[in-house]
């Protein structure tokens, strides 16, 4: 460490200062409170989904007086969440895979190939992260109408893939740039071409990065509403987000069944929760490696 970093710290005997301990006790409590709050919110959400509206407000943290498992089946079959779940699975799954498949070679080329314009092109991709969906949605709609891609899952997959690409390229460029040069040189000495180098050397090395991109794309698209709202017209193409919006409006117009609403929220939340619990190591570490490199 450079001396400047500790220049201000007076030398003292080696001991843990009492203020330090006090200082440590409070933040830890605050942190656990914050953690507790999130867990309570999660618990309330899941518990409320098997309660009646009356129970939800009478005893928000209590167990249900009657277990309304029917909320889930009503949301699933009557409110279109079954169709929504299948559509979301198809659309989000395809788009997330497409993002990885398209972004990986681009990120590899941008970070490892010595070609004119590589730098400018990378910059152009990064700028795309900042484009808000609102500015593109109208022209995009017109464009896709003319291509006949409105109200189709394919159209939605293409849009989702496109809007997710810049961040994916950005993140993966970081991972690719971090691969030691020696590994690449060894491959080229073996006479491996660019495709072989990418597939056999780089993709396995940045495996975690690919997974991170996949999960982050999937999470944000799974929860996307605005684009879907504009691009989807028929009920059989509704995504889960649209089903939830539709349910929210229905309970507002024909009776406040908050239990049903929370069941809808639960249907949307649980798959992501499971995905996250299974793969959280990759999301959390991958996010950091990608951003921090």
């Amino acid at each position: 460490m450079s001396t400047q970093n500790t220049a201000g710290a007076p030398r003292r005997a080696i001991r843990r200062s009492t203020p330090g301990r006090l200082f440590g006790w409070l933040p830890r409590t605050v942190i656990w409170l914050f953690v507790g709050f999130n867990l309570v919110v999660l618990a309330i959400t899941l518990l409320s989904s098997v309660k009646t509206t009356k129970d939800i407000f009478a005893a928000p943290l209590g167990l249900p007086t009657t277990w309304e498992w029917g909320n889930w089946s009503t949301a699933w079959s009557n409110s279109g969440f079954a169709v929504g779940a299948l559509n979301s699975l198809i659309v989000v799954g395809s788009a997330s895979i497409a993002v990885v498949v398209i972004a990986a070679p681009a990120a590899y080329a941008l970070s490892r190939m010595r070609v004119r314009w590589a730098k400018q092109l990378s910059t152009a991709f990064v700028l795309g992260i900042g484009i808000p969906p609102h500015i593109i949605i109208i022209p995009l709609f017109i464009e896709f109408s003319q291509l006949g891609l409105i109200n189709s899952k394919l159209g939605l997959i293409i849009v989702y893939t496109g809007v997710s690409l810049p961040f994916a390229v950005f993140l993966l460029t970081g991972f690719m740039a971090a691969v030691p040069k020696e590994i690449e040189e060894a491959a080229s000495l073996d006479g491996a071409g660019p495709i072989a180098t990418l597939v056999r050397i780089f993709l396995p090395t940045v495996r975690n990065g690919l997974l991170t991109v996949f999960i982050i794309t999937a999470v944000s698209l799974w929860n996307e509403v605005l684009i879907a709202l504009t691009f989807v017209q028929s009920n059989d193409n509704f995504t889960l987000g649209l089903s939830l919006m539709s349910l929210l409006s229905a309970i507002q117009y024909s009776g406040a069944d908050y239990g049903l609403l929370f069941a809808g929220v639960g249907i949307m939340l649980v798959p992501m929760l499971l995905l996250f619990i299974l793969l959280r190591r990759f999301v959390i570490e991958g996010m950091t490696l990608g951003v921090g490199k």
């Binding site: 395809s94 891609l149 109200n151 899952k153 394919l154």
Partner: peptide
């Protein structure tokens, strides 16, 4: 738009099996 058509074609090959559902309009 021309590029779009090309990309769309490429994507639909890539994502064979989940092409646009027939319009119910």
């Amino acid at each position: 738009m021309a590029r779009g058509a090309a990309t769309a074609a490429a994507l639909s090959l890539l994502l064979a099996g989940c092409s646009a559902s027939p319009s119910s309009d």
